[in-house]
């Protein structure tokens, strides 16, 4: 057991744990940030996706010791002052989930995609999202939600007043 300092959703978070423990386990089992999900533990399903310095990363493959000195964003960090982020809002508007277990990972992967490609093509969506499994089969709606989020984000920047609306 060692002491580490993580930066999660903008806050400094001290953690005492073995350095080789996965970031996923630290988030879920030690910090109770359970919005990040375990799906396979092998980087094959994307349920555990978080952003590390803005890059979509499988937290089941990241080790605690190498997760310091970077900025970690989890699903809990996308809502600000009760306002949903554009990708969250778009998923809600499109009803882009069934059981919702893949949703956190999908939203974070899509957030990274939209950062790199604000107006993504369908091919770019497949390229960024293919590592995320939705066993309920809502892929067509997720694709629609990503396009909608792209529009929300652009509209939000133009309006300069955020993007939250019920």
């Amino acid at each position: 057991m060692n002491d580490f300092l993580l930066k999660i959703n903008g806050a400094d978070v001290p953690v005492r744990a073995p350095g080789e423990e996965t970031l996923l386990s630290v988030l879920r089992n030690r910090l109770h940030l359970t919005g990040t999900k375990y799906g396979c533990g092998e980087g094959q399903c994307g349920a555990c996706t978080v952003l590390i310095d803005g890059v979509a990363t499988r937290s089941c493959q990241a080790r605690l010791a190498t997760s310091t000195g970077v900025s970690i964003t989890t699903i809990e960090g996308l809502e600000h002052g009760g306002l949903l982020g554009p990708v969250q809002q778009a998923f809600l508007d499109e009803g882009a989930f069934q059981c919702g277990y893949c949703t956190s990972g999908m939203i974070l992967s899509a957030t990274a995609l939209l950062h790199d490609h604000p107006r993504p093509t369908d091919a770019q969506i497949v390229g960024y999202m293919d590592g995320n499994v939705c066993r309920c089969g809502t892929y067509p709606r997720i694709t629609a939600a990503i396009h909608r989020a792209s529009q929300l984000a652009v509209a939000g920047e133009k309006g300069g007043s955020g993007h939250a609306h019920e």
Binding site: L33, T34, G35, E76, L84, Q89, F97
Partner: peptide, 21 residues
């Protein structure tokens, strides 16, 4: 009618069985 607690699923707030503490 939209999914009744949809917001809990896009915020990670919903507690699944594996999330119970």
């Amino acid at each position: 009618e939209p999914k009744v607690n949809g917001r809990d699923f896009v915020t990670g707030r919903h507690q699944y069985p594996s999330d119970i503490v």
